[in-house]
Every structure is written in C-alpha cells, then in structure tokens.
Design a protein around this nucleic acid. Structure first.
Lengths: 339, 339
DNA sequence: ATGAAAGCGCTAACAC
DNA sequence: GTGTTAGCGCTTTCAT
C-alpha cells in the first residue's frame, strides 16, 4: 500500500505499464474506457507519480533555486514570498537557500542547486561576493539565472535592480522643494554599491541645488539599526543638527528614530527623517516613515517572471538590466512646509 | 562542454563508468592514482553530478518540504529562516511552499511535495483547514511529517507548539502582581484555537485572582493591525479605559498603539499594552513592546531537528507534542509599579 | 488502441 | 582494483 508504481497498476489490471503511463497523462492513444479504469484503480491504490523519475528523463525539474542573503530581513522575505507565489502559479517548485551574506555559503548553495538540476536560478549576491567563478560555470552550463537587487555587471545574466541614484535625487529634490536645505545623510558604507550610489545621489542633488555639502553631515557607519542609532547620537552631540536626516535604509532610520526620541527630539517637529524602505514597513514607525519605496514584491515578481520566460522561451537574455521604479511616499516623518 | 556525465569521463579515460562513479564517491575499491586522475578530469570537464539520477535509485531526495501559511508575517519568515539553516547544515534541501491560509492551496502543495518524494514535511496548517485527508495519505506513505505552530491532534505526527494558556496565565499573573486589576483583552477570534486558548488563559487568571470579568473589556475582532486599531477605538469611546491591554499578537498590539496615540494617550503612562510576540519585533514598537516571547527560531529549529531525526533514525514518532517554552519579557510598554 | 524495447544518469551487487 | 549486469520509475519511439 506504500509507494505504488505504474507497473503495480499495470499488473493489477493485466495490461502494460506503458498503457498506464499514457492513460495517466491523458495521452490520446488510450481509449476513454481504459483511461477511466486506470485512473480509478490508480486512485484506489493510492498512486502518486514519482516526479524524480519523470525529471530524470525529461531533463527538466520544474524547479527554481533561490539564493538570498538573509530571510530575517523583511525586504528579502517579501521578495521570496512573491517569487514563491509566481513560481507556484506557473507550476514550478522553489528550492530556497540562504547565504547569510557569506560568499562561501553562497557558492556552496549554487553548486548544490545546479547539482539538483534546477531549471533556473534567482540570486541576490552576498555583500562580500567578489569571485565570479561559480557564475561562469552556471553560464557554461546554460542554466538561466537572474540576479535581483545585487548583481554582477558584465555577465550574460539579466539583473533586476532598483535605480538608487535617481531615487535619491528625486526624493531629495522633493525635500528641497519643501524648503529644506539642512540635510544630513546616514549613508552606510560608501564602499558598497548601494551605499555609494545613494550617497552620490545625495551629493549631486545638493550640489545641483547649490546647497553646500557639509562633511560632518555625511555619516558613514553601516546598514543596521545600531548604526543609525550611533550616527544620530554623533550628529546630535555635535550640537549642530540638520533639519532632515536621509537614511540609507529602514533599519538605519529606525535607529535614528530611537536616538532622536531618547534625546527628547520630536519627529517631525524637531527633526525630519526619511529614507529607503517600502510601503509595508512604514506602519511600524511612529510617526510613519516617509520613504523612497522599493517594492520588494515588484522586484521578486519581475525577477521570477523574467527567469521563467528565459527558461520556457529559451530566450538567451542578452543580460538585460531592468530597473524597478521607485516611488516617493510622503508619510509623517518629514513635515511638509508647502501646502 | 555542457552537462558532462560520468560516462563521458569514462570514455575520455578509456575506463568503465562504474570506476568513475566509485572514484568520485571516494569508494575504497579504487586506487589513489586512479581516483586522482578521475577527479582531475572530472573537474577539467566541468562535471556536476546529477542528483536527480542519484535520488532516483537511492529513493532518497535529501529534501524537506515546508508548507507555511504566509511569508509576509515575520513570525513565519523567522521560522523558515531557521529551518533552512538547520536543514542546510544537515545537507538537506528545502522546498518552500506557501498556502496563503487556503486549505485548497495547502493540499495542492502537499501533494506536489510528496510527488517530489521529499524525505519529510514541515507544515503549519492554514487557518481554514479542517480536512485531514491529505495528511492521512502522507501517513500511509510513511512520509515523516512534523506540524509546527498549528497542528491536527490525534494523528501520528509530532507537533511543535507554544503552550498558549500557561503563557497567558504566567504573564497575566506578572501583570497582576504589579498591582494591575483593570485589564482588557483583544482576543482575535475565539473560534480559532489560538484565540480561544489565549482568551481562556485570560479569563482563568483573572478569575483565580478574584478580578471580576468585564465583558466590555473582552473585545474580539481579528488578528490584524486594523483589528487592534478598531478594538482600541471602541474601547476608548466607551469612556471606560482599563489600565492595561492584553493583545493576542503583535499586529493587534501595533494597531492598539496607533489608536492610543491618536487618542492622545501615552504608553505606558496612560495605558499599558502587552501581548504575544517575539524578541526581534519589540524594537519596532515605540515604546518597546512588553511581550510573551514566542521565539520563532526556537520553533523552526526544533521542528526541523525532530523531522530530520525521524527521517534518519526512522523513528516512528508516536506523535509527540512538544511545547516550546515561552518567556515573559518586560520592556517599556507596561509601567512597572513594583520595584 | 495497445505494447515491447530502449534509455534518462547513476549506483549496488556481483564477478573477474 | 576494475568492470559487467541490472535496475531505480518513468517516458519516448516504434511496432503490432
């Protein structure tokens, strides 16, 4: 009663296994009456098709491998959620791996996934990854791969990313239009791409608007809550507060909130804070965080869609770079001066 | 250069494919020199073992299927994260599926996963699931399964759950010990297990402490932010505020925060709020939320550990029910009266 | 309409 | 130490 095979059904019915195989896949060869009989006994016997066997000779697994740096970060869990959604809808399995931001684990994950003969890969690079070797291998094996959020340039893989700099420029222009000129940037590490681009956007926009750049208002630290917290403390203790803080991400913004409140400052009355984030997290801030919305669901969906397209149409994507639109969402954490 | 097989290596070296197979698995049959030669050419040729083929004849996939209601809920994403961690460490793949709290999708997911011949299943039931049929099938096929957080009783599967009622009792006793007697409960739906148990704990504890139950302070609504928000508004408009609100989960607590602040009430000075949650989210509350800590990582880890044990030791778990300890964490959202 | 033969890539069992 | 045979469960020709 356990693990029935097609041949068991065939034996039961005194017919050939091939007939069973065909009937179960609704092949036109088989007569309706036969089909009915076979499907019925299959059900009765508790038959469950063995997909592994099917995969072996079709050389297709209908499986997508995801490599993500971290699932505790809600940005990534929203992305994965939307990927699973899209993949499931299109009859793909999702094998999920987490790199913990480690290059070595990431590499291992990818090797495991290609061993599993996934039909395609969705990967967001770890922060420390520099070696392209595994990816070259993936390319050689003709396995479709789409990078999301963090990507290697100049490889034949498509990339879905946010366009940080324009996002920063647009949002800062909006802030400046409200009459703000004293703006600080908590910019993470400018060594990383993300930190760099966002900071560049900051500097460019201020410059274009003829606002002098004050070095003491550009604070690097990191991308975590504590970094935002400490950056704000540093800023505050300098005795020279800006009107608004531009945070490189939501965790840094939250740290800034904490420090500001501890210092007895009201948001947005005494200090405005805004930064990169996404719609769903703004509610967790008090007051609601004004954000440059980088919608993770949109990113996950686009990446998965593109990948499945490449898999099914066998499009050799020329390695397109696709930008997901960012949107500036006014919430409560920066006071609007202009009505 | 694409998709090299063992037989290709064998041909290249003019030896048998079996020798290659053995050498690559470091089988003692093969001489060191031969092994070296084989491993080298395998590397040179870009050989990647086909796990699907291996799985087919070992009848083991080293794959675990997860069925989770929702990944946007950070409680679940932390759980999945820890499961992936543990599984990866023990050389298992994880296939992730999401049921979106729909029984039909859940059923489909499980059927897909057993078709994939996963070695075991980790499932958290959807809120609407009542039919045990698929699970009976899983049992018949002798596939190990561990329920987490939400489970069927009286099946031969192990369950990892939080013990809600004692958690509620313990925490409420702590609150009462501080001298509070005017306590309201935002209890979700008491139709669901979770809602019911937490509410029972509430009623029992108050009763044991000879605190009269006031019906208008037991507000049912739901488990989402908006429900907490509306419950609080209702409570407040009654003109009869308690000292403390006991929220059935973090989203409800957050809704209560919002409504309280909008009404100009200070937390914890004017109203205390606490509820079920976990450590990592407390920071997102301002002030920090006092919680009954239900640690998702602990739950995910235990579930995965138990499952892999059942898989590898072929222990037929008698269907144990394992409780994850809850811990009351004093934070800032309820004022402590006793020093 | 039904079935026999061959093969997907790998491994276990057994011989040489 | 190396190779031969057979088979994992299924599907795809190609006969009948």
């Amino acid at each position: 009663m356990v693990n029935i095979r097609q041949s068991d059904i065939a034996k039961e019915l005194n017919i050939s296994r091939v007939t069973v195989s065909k009937a179960l896949r609704d092949h036109p060869d088989i007569s309706q009456s036969m089909k009915k009989k076979i499907v019925e006994t299959a059900g009765k016997m508790g038959y469950v098709p063995n997909l592994i066997a099917r995969q072996l000779n079709s050389r297709r697994t209908f499986t997508i491998g995801i490599v993500v740096p971290d699932l505790e970060n809600s940005f990534f869990s929203y992305i994965v959620d939307s990927m699973v959604d899209y993949a499931t809808e299109h009859n793909y399995y999702v094998i999920l791996t987490v790199s913990r931001e480690k290059e070595s684990i990431e590499k291992q994950n990818i090797e495991n996934l290609i061993g599993m003969r996934v039909d395609g890969l969705l990967v967001c690079l770890s922060q420390e990854t520099t070696d392209r070797q595994v990816f070259t291998k993936v390319g050689k094996m003709n396995i479709p791969l789409v990078f999301f959020d963090r990507a290697f340039e100049n490889m034949k893989f498509s990339r879905i990313v946010f366009n940080d700099k324009p996002g920063a420029i647009n949002s800062l222009n909006r802030i400046i239009l409200e009459g703000y000129t004293k703006i600080a940037s908590f910019s993470g590490y400018s060594k990383t791409n993300i930190g760099k681009e966002r900071l560049e956007g900051f500097i460019d926009t201020l410059t274009k608007n003829k606002i002098p750049i004050r070095k003491e208002w550009i604070i690097e630290g990191g991308f975590e809550l504590k970094d935002g917290y400490e950056s704000f403390k540093k800023l505050n203790s300098s005795g020279n507060l800006p009107e608004v803080v531009f945070a490189v991400n939501d965790r840094v913004a939250l740290g800034a909130y904490k420090a500001a409140k501890e210092a007895g400052l009201r948001i947005p009355e005494d200090i405005g804070i805004f930064g990169y984030g996404f719609n769903e997290i703004t509610d967790f801030f008090d007051p609601q965080l004004t954000v440059i919305n980088q919608d993770p669901r949109k990113m996950g969906l686009e990446a998965c869609k593109l990948l499945i397209n490449e898999i099914e149409k066998e499009i050799k994507s020329g390695g397109n770079k696709i930008y997901i639109e960012e949107e500036f969402l006014w919430r409560k954490s920066v006071r609007r001066k202009v009505k």
